[in-house]
């Protein structure tokens, strides 16, 4: 198990390095002077700032040296400086990362728990109106633009009904502490996390349903039934456990999409995470912030993948042996 996780960690580091090289190539592929690109639109007018950048990243030196300097500074967690916000990019991201982690992890858990539950329900009642309703809902969520659902949900539950806050991370000026503050954040979290999770819920539901039905036809289930096990036990211990494996694989593959979806959700709900930071950076043409967020979000995806790997090991004992 530990060796399995270690191997995955090594792979994650390799991918992160590849992303750094990719970022570097992107800066050079962009039209214009790389220093101006890194400085962003606001910083490009400052001669001294540009000259500093040139010296730091050795922009008058050979390509290989430039790449080495870029990778070296990023590995030391120097993601550049945002001239527009007058702050190092890493500090900007560090401030906003907890909010995004909270949002995406909550959405992920909501999607997985509700999706799998709905999928199990639909599969066990295959062909009934339960199945039809759940499957139709999944089809609908699967086709809905995330940002639009977010807008409509905030309109309905926040503006019209007034049930939940539809804006921000906590009530500004309330100065809650301890449990009250957690409760306040939790209230603010419900709408963004649910809307972000909706699409993925649909995906996991369909996968769980299909995979449960596929498993039910296999021989080992017949054996279990012949042994006289109760249907509930068969479903839970034999069918679901095996049916979950492809769902977890899919969840790992889609981690990137949840992180990407956070950009839209955070923009709509003014959630102060790195997704909103990315959105702000677009309108300000702040490239160091953009590339920094891109790098950190890729790292987040790798973290999600690691979590699903561990889940996989927990569900499938065969992996522990190898």
């Amino acid at each position: 198990m530990i060796r399995f996780i270690l191997a995955r960690l090594v792979k994650a580091v390799v991918i992160l390095l590849a992303i750094l090289i990719f970022n570097f190539l992107l800066i050079h592929a962009a039209p214009g002077d790389p220093a101006a690109v890194m400085a962003g639109e606001a910083g490009a007018t400052d001669e001294k700032f540009i000259a500093d950048l040139r010296a730091r990243f050795g922009l008058d030196q050979p390509f290989g040296v430039q790449l080495w300097l870029y990778v070296k500074s990023t590995v030391q967690l120097d993601l550049g400086f945002s001239y527009r916000q007058n702050m190092p990019v890493i500090d900007l991201i560090w401030d906003r990362l907890p909010a995004t982690l909270l949002l995406t992890l909550t959405a992920f858990v909501i999607a997985l728990v509700l999706g799998v539950t709905a999928g199990v329900l639909a599969a066990s009642k295959q062909g009934t109106w339960w199945d039809s309703i759940i499957s139709s809902m999944a089809l609908l969520f699967y086709a809905t633009p995330l940002f639009w659902v977010a807008l409509m949900a905030s309109l309905l539950f926040s503006v019209v009904l007034g049930w939940l806050p539809g804006y921000g991370y906590e009530t500004i000026g309330a100065n809650y502490t301890g449990f009250e503050r957690a409760l306040d954040i939790g209230k603010h979290l419900i709408l963004p996390a649910t809307t972000l999770g909706l699409f993925f819920m649909a995906v996991y539901m369909r996968m769980t349903r299909a995979s449960m039905l596929e498993m039910s036809r296999l021989d080992f289930v017949k054996t279990a039934r012949a042994k006289g096990l109760k249907n509930r036990v068969i479903q839970r211990r034999h069918v679901l456990r095996n049916a979950l494996l492809p769902v977890i694989t899919l969840a790992g593959l889609q981690a990137g999409q949840i992180v990407g979806g956070a950009v839209l959700t955070e923009t709509v709900f003014a959630w102060p995470g790195i997704g909103r930071l990315l959105f702000e950076a677009i309108s300000q043409r702040d490239y160091s912030v953009m590339l920094g967020v891109f790098f950190v979000s890729a790292a987040m995806v790798l973290l999600f993948n690691l979590i699903t790997d561990v889940l996989y090991v927990l569900v499938d004992p065969r992996i522990r042996l190898t």
């Binding site: 991918i15 990137g256 950009v263 891109f294």
Partner: peptide, 9 residues
Amino acid sequence: FFQTIPSFA
């Protein structure tokens, strides 16, 4: 690699 990096970002 392309499947891992967050595509929307």
